[in-house]
Design a protein around this nucleic acid. Structure first.
Lengths: 236, 236
DNA sequence: TGCTTCAGTGAACAGCGTTAACTGTTAACG
DNA sequence: CGTTAACAGTTAACGCTGTTCACTGAAGCA
């Protein structure tokens, strides 16, 4: 019945991350301090260094966990939806992302708000947070590719896009399961508009115009769906 | 020839803000510390309190200055453009904003990146930074309203938007110089897409798909212009 | 049993924003 | 002109932060 030493370690590690998240929710990212976490757990600050090599590493682990939680939530949403129309799942996913963001604004802010304009990166692409972000992005990518392969939607021609853009998009054709550049362009369009919209709503940058952006989001989502040749989202 | 005391004060104040900006550019917002600024100026940290009541106030002043600089740059861009077609100025403005953002990523990050999801705000709407942001937003608002009044563009009907959204948009009709809700919807659409696009590009969130987002931005800008019933941007 | 591993502590360091008390210069006023 | 008050700036200190080092005590293993 007495816990193993490795189990104890895992339990403490989970407690640390849980505490960090609680502090994140209650006071924003600035409240997630090494000392604050230690204080909350009844430990001394250096004790945390047995679990994380630095404060930044703790935040990275928290970010990775949150990405994975969001990814799992969206995948569960897909699995529980029996609708054979994959286009409907795109609405499901988009609304799911927005709902999660609005329900967890602090977490969302940590994941997507903390923008790092680091032009000379060269090496921070293998952090836990970044890898988890890639897994998250793959969810949307996979669904869009499935939608495409189930019923290819009309897309702009290569002449419309121009050679420079086509060259870049074609380079991503393999990642997008063989979609043509015009279709990838629409997929990118879908993502950028959805992402931008949710960020602006959660970060309160729409407040000056709309006190409740829900209806606006719905209308925009319908427009974006139209661009992918999808039908009306829901009867509602 | 010896400078007045009030002039000396103004000069020091300008030096402080210039130093703060230099630190911002070279090391991000985290590098703009009270002590760092003082060190750079050969002063002791408490001396800065003769000019700013707190570190936050210094940042606010810097934000306000940057907003004003950006606003002035965009207005100068408009004034130097003799094109009577106001629609063309929308492209000019959009490209001007993007150019400024790409040329000054650190400053842009301070202005637009640091998102503050503060739901229980109630009182931070009168900071210098927020007021300057309103002046900045007014530039776009004014031009869109001018475009509308010069040549009203086709816009979605109230039935298309739904009563909830129409009610919110109508409440902004006065601010938008009497534009109808459908037109305000398109104006908002213009702003959200432009804003989201530039943020994603500057903050490197498009790098996984596009190494150079210029062509993509151009294509998107054309789409957004189409939605406002504008003609082709430029022969180029 | 003896040795090692490891969680955790206490003290300390450098850096941060901020405050209080103090010094010298500079402008203003009777 | 001389007094006085305002002002720019300093030094010292407080509490906070992330981080390191030397150390203790207990758990795990041979």
């Amino acid at each position: 019945m007495e816990p193993n030493r490795r189990d104890r370690r895992a339990a403490t590690l989970a407690e640390i991350k849980a505490t960090a998240r609680r502090l994140l929710v209650s006071g924003g990212v600035a409240a997630v301090g090494l000392r604050a976490v230690a204080r909350e757990l009844g430990l001394t600050p250096p004790a945390l260094y047995r679990y994380f090599p630095s404060h930044e590493a703790l935040l990275q682990a928290l970010i990775a966990d949150l990405y994975d939680e969001l990814t799992a939530a969206l995948m569960a949403l897909q699995d529980n939806d029996a609708d054979p129309d994959l286009g409907a799942r795109l609405y499901l996913l988009a609304n799911g992302l927005r709902d999660w963001a609005l329900a967890h604004p602090a977490e969302f802010g940590l994941l997507f708000g903390t923008a790092i304009p680091d032009p000379d990166a060269e090496g921070h692409e293998d952090t836990p947070g970044h890898q988890a972000a890639m897994r998250f992005a793959a969810v949307f990518k996979a669904l869009v590719a499935q939608v495409w392969h189930q019923k290819p939607f009309p897309h702009p021609s290569e002449q419309d896009l121009g050679p420079v853009l086509v060259a870049q998009l074609t380079r991503k054709s393999e990642y997008f399961d063989g979609m043509p550049p015009g279709a990838i362009y629409l997929a990118l369009n879908y993502w950028t508009r959805l992402y931008g919209l949710i960020c602006m709503e959660v970060f309160g940058q729409l407040h000056w115009a709309l006190e409740d952006a829900g209806a606006y989001f719905e209308a925009q989502l319908f427009e974006i769906g139209e661009a992918l040749g999808l039908d009306c989202p829901q009867p509602e």
